[in-house]
Nucleic acid binder design. Structure first.
Lengths: 116, 116
DNA sequence: TGCCAATTTGGTTATATTGCCAAATAGGCA
DNA sequence: TGCCTATTTGGCAATATAACCAAATTGGCA
């Protein structure tokens, strides 16, 4: 793999990594409904505000959100709404995982019937 | 956030985390062109085969690839081709990051002209 | 200026991820 | 059976992430 290709995969991975955390997915989900202050987001996520602030700054450096300071507060908004499209694919993967589990249980039951 | 919602974000995050690595993105990209043995994939990625094998097993437990043993070899194929749709969004985020850098440089130049 | 509220940053600890080497496993074939 | 090839697993060291608390920063306002 040449260096340029390698760099492209690394850049993509950085963005995906920024998304790949439950709290940050929650933040993105909430921001998809409109801009929000850190205090509001903190309540939504249910963690220490300093933790949420760090999650937000990580999303910002990945280019996924914008921040804007207005008076006392900082408001965040989604920079890349296309990431919301990921969710339906993620759900379909999850459903097929569930289906695989069901199939396995079925297989086990049938095997048991044959054995026993 | 209730427990069920929390669990959903965690499940989604697990899948994204499985994708969020340069080598694994490379694997997914290669598998999008058709099934492949571990040896071929190892060559593509350019890492130790044991490392690639671990990446593949991680992708498998996330439900993103299937594996099938045929004779001496194990062939992997993509289970969730929809993840390929992520790439165009990732690229658009990357482009806007580049644009932001260019804008910043422009701002700095203008500021310098005013100052100096 | 001095104080208060909102947010970020620093520091620390616990946990998770990654990559390599070496060893184990599994299949094919003489 | 014994050897060879392909792949996985175990173990370890290095690095990265995550969460909390405490302290610093910034803006608004008396």
């Amino acid at each position: 793999m040449d260096a340029k290709t390698q760099a492209r995969y690394e850049a993509r991975a950085r963005i995906l990594k920024a998304l790949a955390h439950p709290s940050r997915l929650c933040l993105v989900d909430r921001l998809s409904k409109g801009e929000c202050s850190v205090a509001q987001l903190t309540e939504e996520v249910g963690a220490d505000m300093s933790t949420v602030s760090k999650h937000l700054s990580l999303l910002r450096s990945a280019g996924l959100v914008f921040d804007e300071k207005r008076g006392n507060q900082v408001f965040y908004r989604l920079a890349a709404p296309c990431v919301l499209d990921f969710f339906s694919c993620l759900e379909s993967v999850l459903h097929s995982q569930v289906q695989t589990q069901i199939d396995l249980v079925g297989d086990m039951k049938r095997a048991k019937l044959k054995i026993g």
